[in-house]
Write a protein that binds this DNA or RNA. Sequence first.
DNA 1: TTGTAAGCGTTATCAC
DNA 2: GTGATAACGCTTACAA
Lengths: 338, 338
Amino acid sequence: MTATVRDVARLAGVSAMTVSRVINGQPGVSAETRQRIEAAIAELDYAPSKVASSLISQKTGLIGMIVPDVSNPFFGPIVRGAETTARRAGFKLLLCNSESDLRLEREYVTDLISHRVEGLLIAPVGDSSRQNLGRYVAGNFPIVLLDRLIAGLDCDSVTLDNIDGARQLVAHLIAVGHRRIAFVTDADEVSTGRQRLAGYRKAIEDAGLPFDEDLVFHTTTDQMGGYRAAQQVLAAAERPSAIFAVNNMTAVGVMQALRQANITVPDDMALACFDDVQHLAVISPFLTVFDQPAEDMSKAAMQLLLERIGGTAGKQARTVTFPGKLIVRVSSALPKRG
Amino acid sequence: MTATVRDVARLAGVSAMTVSRVINGQPGVSAETRQRIEAAIAELDYAPSKVASSLISQKTGLIGMIVPDVSNPFFGPIVRGAETTARRAGFKLLLCNSESDLRLEREYVTDLISHRVEGLLIAPVGDSSRQNLGRYVAGNFPIVLLDRLIAGLDCDSVTLDNIDGARQLVAHLIAVGHRRIAFVTDADEVSTGRQRLAGYRKAIEDAGLPFDEDLVFHTTTDQMGGYRAAQQVLAAAERPSAIFAVNNMTAVGVMQALRQANITVPDDMALACFDDVQHLAVISPFLTVFDQPAEDMSKAAMQLLLERIGGTAGKQARTVTFPGKLIVRVSSALPKRG
DNA sequence: TTGTAAGCGTTATCAC
DNA sequence: GTGATAACGCTTACAA
């Protein structure tokens, strides 16, 4: 179990070096010796230590990945895609959940660096993550941003075309007949929120409607945040006919508040959001969404990271933007009453 | 970025040892020296290498986790819970997706061992995983099984009471009025499938109904497997009025096949399965399920593993069984027609 | 309070 | 074809 090269060498009657050659498939070992060594390895259940070899090669074969929460149906496929791509390139993934907490994110980053991950794939908490990452980016440490950009940080990244996605989604709501559309989103701290707000505004202005700041409800983009924001929406003087939630968890919270207030979707209020939940639509094709190809985005991001690690990337930061697609279901229909 | 203790020592005008003391917060360093060293650390962006310290301490602070697929809504929370618990104990998680592939699982296990993870938390592919794990269990390497047991492998484990869960779910279907209930499950290779079959059978016999082997449809427990099995169910001579799918993905496949055949749930066919999808029910409370407390189970499993790693566990294998709960929604109602 | 020497398990280098 | 030696970056044990 904890045998070393030397134990194997002793048992096989050779030197540690020869064992090392066999392990790494290097030439220059006679077939007979090789067999004796392989027998000794099997006998001792010997597993070479990557800890020791990493120390010499300065390569751990480890990649750090930080997401807010793997159990979020958007990030699950993201982690899955990244891991698959990493594995195929011979890397293992150290997974961290930042819980959208800047301090926890910072702790993870420094820990991962200490573990000598060869690169970092991260869906950052927000613009403030710049504090946590800036020095490494400046030091040319391989980092790729996923889903969210960081203002003022020039770095490889993979995101969705959030502006146009939001524009499409809101344009759809307008086409259906909605005129007052609430947007439930976060503070100005996260790039996705900012971009989706821009798209929301564009769709409204494209349609010749007035952009009303009071229809933008800022909150935390989790279930509780969506819940609270929806209550504010319902309390608004002139109630909107539709709510656009900035992401999936926020939409869940919105739905929860609506249900509690006995408001039926879409009969009393329409609802649409970002992020489709894979497979869910089969069970219940209800929610109109703008779907992000999460797994593909993540694979692309890992690819960028692998290139950076491999040194085949060039100095300039690269940006990949995916289009995504609008999926219209029943939740966005025009209310029958009200 | 890649400074070493010696670089820091040189810059601070001390020995490497003194730097090491400062890093590890050991006593015996004058305040003045400490400050000089801390300044040097900051100046050089020095991050101590866990690769090197792991080599000495024989502790990596790494735990391996293998699940079939993190993007599965059952395993997402499982990974999340494990990571949170591991982090609080100072461990990082190396995440692997076995894709329910025995060979891939084997590869992951040996790789993780080479990386010197201090323990392994695994939702194994099935009974055959015994080949992949047996030697390590025999060698007292810390391993905890999650969700699935392995026949003939005596090892710490956390599972659900699958027999009673399935019994409750099927008893509910019977109480609603169903008499012919199809069970879509895997081959005999996975403990959860076996146990749920036992529960299915018990509920049927408890109700004084005949157990009909032809109502048990064996397939792969993924979406495609559920899809194919449902087609067989529909082709059955005497069509059942309800389908019990062994897990979430299988249920999705069943639903897909039913929809394609223009069969409405529950009006033409009832459906129930294991695994609730968190949050989904808020959006659309449709599917009757037997819910497993995935995150809690996972936290408990990680706790067992941490105890084993810490040596506070004792030789005997421990088993923790969670109860879970039946959640009745609309999909299990008695068909109106047929 | 601080430093020196040795070694953790590998492998690169060079010698035989 | 094979082996001795040193080194990767750190820490334990001991010395000063």
